[in-house]
Structures are given as structure tokens and as C-alpha cells.
Simulated scan of single mutants.
Amino acid sequence: MNILLISSGFQGVYSFFERRIAGALQKAGHHCAAFQAGSMLNVFKLKQQFRQPDLILLMAGLKVQEPVLECIRQSGIKSAVWMTEDPYYMDWTVPAAAYVDYIFTIDEAALEQYKALGHPRVYHLPLGTDPALFCPSPVSAEFESELCLVGVPYSNRIEMIDFLLAATDYRIQLVGRGWSRYVQQWNLSASGRVGLVNAWVKPETAAGYYNGAKIVLNIHRLADERYNRNRMGVAAKSINNRTFDAAACAAFQLTDDKPGLSGQFAAGQEIIPYLDKYDFLQKLHYYMAHDQERRHIADAARRRVLAAHTFEHRIQQLLGIIQV
């Protein structure tokens, strides 16, 4: 099968996802040509590269110019978009959805919105992970921590770290761009208990921090975060891709409870959800004191990932739905 993969045009984690998705397509025996369609100048090139593919797969659906979308629609080729940032940028993704035959979204609340808007073929498809990269591995001391959070400082994450520093004596490792302004103040009052890597890190580096943490803190983004483009205020129901990555490392996770968690993992047996910061604190103390139980749960999460949550699984699901 010939598949034209139109990349998001973004760097960082987006390009990582797209390389892994292209690799999964090729591993499944399909020919995959990647193309970046970020400007009107690329529309002619896009038309040239069609060469009658069986499927056009558009990644992310963010800020795609209308001429590119119209080119896809007029091609007569089956088309799909995989919305990998839902529901946080639905101001941008909803207009793009009208141009494609199939919508795949990582979030169940976003799925409900696309269906309500009348699109006939909308499916929930979380991102997967690469268990060859995200895997259990010994790490050096620089990656070790009691509690680790990988991600940017959204307001609910800042609030949780502030609470933990006041309520506990644990050392916390923060990894992500934008934390420095908060960490300087925290360390003045918390005896230097906060470690910081104030940058976006490569996936293989993030895997090191997952492997080095006793507990990974996974706090999901809020619907009304100021960075969002989500005027409809759609609140995410599904878990983020970090959940799969950390689980693939056999890292123990405490995550805010999401309705979609139980559809992907056995909540309480493979990943531990918490209801609020007080419930989190109780569970944090318990699992810090029970190493063997913590390891048993984390190992179960990795087994689940290997059985159901790799990029190869996702590509199989996507193509099975489209039935190209």
C-alpha cells in the first residue's frame, strides 16, 4: 500500500511521533512517503507527489493552510487526519476536519465534539509508544529522583509541586522548559529539594528520567490553560501519550484520574490514579514505603503496553478501520 504521510511541520516531539509512525507503516509492509505541507508554496509539490497513493494521512491537523486541505479533498484519494493534540487546539482542528474522510483523535471528549458537528467517521486512537526506546534501563545518578515530572509548567502542575514541597520532604525532579522562574523561589524555601532541567528533552532523555524515578507524576493539562486554543472549553477525557511512554519504561505512575484511563490500563493495578491532591499525598506516602508493590504495578503496566499500546498496534487499528 502507498501512503502519503503529511507531517505537522513542527519539530520536537511531533517529529519523533511522525518518524515512529512512518516506521510502523513501513514495518507493516507499506510504502510511506513523508511530506511537509506547511505553506502555499508546497501545494504544487504536494500534487506532484500524489502519484496515486492509497491513503493520505495528515498529522496533527494544526494550522494547515486551506489550499493544502482543498488539494487533499479534491484528490479523490482516501484521506485521514490523526489529531494528536486534542482537545487543546480545537479552534484550529475543527476547520481542518471537514476536508478529510476519516478523523482519528487521541481524546474521547474531542471525538464527541467532531461527531456532534456532523462528521460521519470519527474514531478514538491514542498515540502509542516505542518500547525499544522507552524500556527499563539502568541510569546514572543524574537521572535518579524520588519524584519526577516531565512536562511544561501548566497551572495545575505548579499548584501540585507547590503543595508537595509544603507537605512533604521528598526531592522532586522537574524536566521541561519554563520551570526556572518557579524553581528559584521554591529552592529558597525548600532547601534545594527541586532539581531542574529547564529544556525540552529528547525522548531517549525523558526515558532516562522515567527509569530513574521512584514515582513519575503525570498531571494532565487543563481545558482552560492559557496556552490553549479551545474556545469550546472541551475538557480532555483520555490519558496523554506520556502515560504510555512512562509505562513502557516500567516506571510507576501516579496520575490524575481520567475517565479514559480504565479503557487503556487496569486502574489501581497497572497505573494508580488519584482524585485530588490529598488523595495523591496519601498514595504517594504509601507507595514510597512499599517498593515491591510499586515495582509489581509498574511491571504490569509495561506488559500492558507491549500487548496493546505500541505504534504498531495503533497503525494496525487505523488501517483496519479505513480498510484501504
Rank of each mutant, 00 (worst) to 15 (best):
I158N: 04
G128A: 02
E159V: 09
N156P: 09
S140N: 15
Y170W: 11
V139R: 06
D169C: 14
L165T: 07
S145V: 03
C148H: 00
I172D: 01
P131F: 06
I161W: 01
M160H: 03
E146G: 12
I172Y: 01
F134G: 00
M160L: 10
A167G: 13
R157V: 06
R157H: 05
C148F: 04
F143K: 01
P153I: 07
T168D: 08
S145I: 04
P131M: 05
Q173D: 09
F163N: 07
I172P: 01
S145Y: 04
G176Q: 04
R171T: 13
G178I: 03
Q173E: 11
V150L: 13
R171Y: 11
G128C: 02
I172G: 00
M160E: 03
Y154C: 08
T168L: 07
D169S: 15
C135K: 10
L165W: 09
S155G: 15
A167C: 14
L165C: 11
P126K: 06
L149R: 00
S140Q: 13
A166W: 15
V152C: 11
E144K: 12
F134I: 10
D169R: 14
L127T: 04
E159T: 13
V150R: 02
Y154N: 05
C148Y: 00
L149Q: 01
Q173C: 10
R171A: 11
A167D: 13
L127K: 04
P153A: 07
S137C: 15
G151L: 03
I158Q: 09
L174T: 03
G178K: 05
F143W: 05
I161A: 04
T168P: 06
S140P: 07
W179E: 03
N156A: 14
I161G: 01
L133T: 05
E142F: 10
A167R: 06
G176L: 06
L127H: 08
A167I: 10
A132S: 15
